[in-house]
Design a protein around this nucleic acid. Structure first.
Lengths: 153, 153
DNA sequence: TCACTAGGTTCCCTGAAGGAACCCTATCGC
DNA sequence: GCGATAGGGTTCCTTCAGGGAACCTAGTGA
């Protein structure tokens, strides 16, 4: 096996990476999320090789992140749309944007802004605890084995 | 150039991927985050090729995500520790865990649990708006061009 | 009949990932 | 003094994935 497969690891990070960890996949997800839904549009926007684009799209469809939907019968034309699974995956993109804005944007400032529907303001996404609502960063937690942990060997 | 470099794109997602988008990098970050700090420990835990591990560590150090620190002078021994930049990157892992738990964990349940220091409870990380505090998912926002956007061509 | 478009597929070439062996320095046990 | 061991890499070789360009097929329009 050339590239190691992560899917078998007892780790949700590894299993998530197995779905979108390959190069280009998150950018394809981003484009489909913002409404770039067709093969040629994606290829133009990303500058990705058509071969790799076809492979990634097929994989993302297989994983249930996107659907290939026919939007015209004659001539037959297709587009890619996110499933619920894929839309939830976009939360990951939001967090990437947050980190990238903070550490890589430089003087030019962030390339995009997010306006929150609920309050109408330009805002960032923050991580908060599902239990108490206080900020919950990676530095604010203990990591404990869960029910799906690999058996101690 | 073989693999397309994402660093030049006017997109915080692409620039974040340039730092940790390569295969293995997020898993190395996870391991260092949970206290697996030495070369051989990392290699054992991940089953990664030593060559690739050395490359990834050097890149992550170059990017300021980790530091290579000497913890013993005689014999000279080194370990890798996260910088602030790297610790903030771990938030991304938290979100990956959230998605992976929900969509890939299956009947066995999540492999790890997170206990929040502030409240002491087992909890998940949720995305909330930095302005109003309400939930802020990828589906709850409009994406607008920001100051660092690429000039319209 | 010709050209054009969407959506891929096929081909070849290069270079990155995997794996194993090797290397260097330093300490330990004898 | 000498071999064994450990940490932390580096080197070499092989295989396969990414890049790029050309090609293909259905349908449409002129």
């Amino acid at each position: 096996m050339q590239r190691t497969q992560f899917a078998g690891m007892a780790c949700s990070i590894a299993r998530t990476l197995d779905v979108i960890g390959e190069p280009w996949s998150p950018l394809i997800l981003r484009d489909v999320y913002v409404g770039i839904n067709r093969f040629d549009q994606l290829q133009d926007d990303l500058g990705i090789s058509r071969k790799v684009l076809a492979q990634r799209l097929a994989w993302l469809v297989e994983q249930g992140v996107m659907e290939r939907r026919q939007y015209s019968g004659r001539p037959p034309r297709h587009e890619y749309v996110l499933t619920t699974k894929g839309r939830e995956l976009c939360d990951l993109l939001l967090v990437m944007v947050g980190w990238g804005d903070r550490w890589t944007a430089g003087d030019a400032g962030p390339p995009v802004l997010h306006r929150h529907h609920a309050c109408g303001e330009i805002a960032r996404a923050e991580l908060r605890c599902s239990h108490c609502g206080e900020p919950m960063r990676a530095t604010d937690i203990d990591v404990l084995p869960g029910p799906g942990a690999a058996p101690a060997s």
